[in-house]
Design a protein around this nucleic acid. Structure first.
Length: 273
DNA sequence: AGCCAGGTTTGTA
DNA sequence: TACAAACATGGC
């Protein structure tokens, strides 16, 4: 169990609804039930702030990025007028450190897809292929292992409603099970790790950047999707630019804070439009 | 009813 | 290298 004192810089709604993660449930009382790998936790409000009910404090402390100083990050980003506004709006966000394989599969599924549907697909896959787990009487499924996913073929994933992504998922799961070294990316530079990820089926520039940011905490990345394109058009330049150049534009300005900037801008745009 | 989604792949010049 | 079309599905 982890206790978090009331602070501006931890808000479950912002953290889980900001688009970085797809495996969580909101409960009627406003609690968040979260899943990562084969673990679960319940985040609930308390008089002093929040309680993280979980079996492994050290794991969730890292997962929730509790040892990073977000006040400092926001102060630095706030030199830019729009980012000051966006960061103020999303100040409760924390960039999760998610499981690499789960993040990889999740963001392949995310391509050209709606967030509610992505969540549904990942839940279905977990229910079908994930191992049963139990925490304090709460039954749930782990995210499927690479092995479990590699045992299924394209046809299976099509039957699960993955559409044309079925092939990418089948191929990439087999690659990882066959020894493609996800863990090895930790020790690579952002640029090198990105290049490696791009060799996987279904992983293009945007998905690679999301994996680097949300699983490896490589914050010198700036994933560009349709929403961020709108942000750039509406607030920065008044014209469209290729995704690669938009990404470059923000990384030049914000360096290793670019990833945080991206999340604040994404959340701001998506919630306010 | 139709648009569109946290894009990638494939084909073409 | 750069750009366009094709791509499955279902939530809204």
């Amino acid at each position: 169990m982890i206790e978090i004192k009331k602070t501006d810089y931890f808000d479950p709604r912002s953290i889980f609804e900001c688009g970085q993660v797809f495996r969580y449930l909101t409960e009627e009382d406003g609690n968040y039930r979260i899943f990562t790998g084969d673990k679960t936790a319940l985040i609930r409000k308390s008089a002093e702030g929040y309680i993280i009910d979980c079996a492994d404090d050290a794991y969730f402390r890292r997962y929730l990025d509790l040892d990073t100083d977000y006040e400092k990050i926001i102060r630095r980003l706030s030199q830019h007028v729009l980012l000051a506004k966006a960061a103020q709006f999303g100040k409760g966000i924390r960039i999760l450190r998610q499981e690499p394989f789960e993040t990889l599969i999740g963001f392949i599924v995310s391509a050209n897809n709606h967030i509610p549907r992505i969540k549904g697909i990942l839940q279905r896959l977990s229910n079908a292929l994930g191992e049963k787990r139990n925490y304090k009487g709460y039954e749930y499924r782990a995210f499927p292992t690479a092995r479990a996913m590699a045992e299924k073929n394209t046809d299976y994933y099509e039957s699960q409603g993955l559409g044309y992504r079925a092939k990418y998922i089948a191929q990439t799961a087999k690659a990882v099970y066959g020894g493609w070294d996800l863990d090895g990316l930790c020790s690579l530079s952002t640029e090198e790790a990105r290049k490696e990820l791009l060799s996987l089926s279904g992983v293009g520039p945007k998905v690679a950047d999301c994996i680097l940011l949300f699983a490896y905490a490589k914050t010198d990345t700036f994933p560009v999707d349709t929403w961020i394109e709108k942000v750039y058009y509406d607030y920065f330049d008044g014209k469209t630019l290729p995704a690669k150049k938009i990404s470059h534009y923000f990384i030049e300005r914000f360096g290793n804070l670019a990833g945080y900037a991206q999340q604040y801008l994404f959340y701001y745009k998506r919630e306010l439009d």
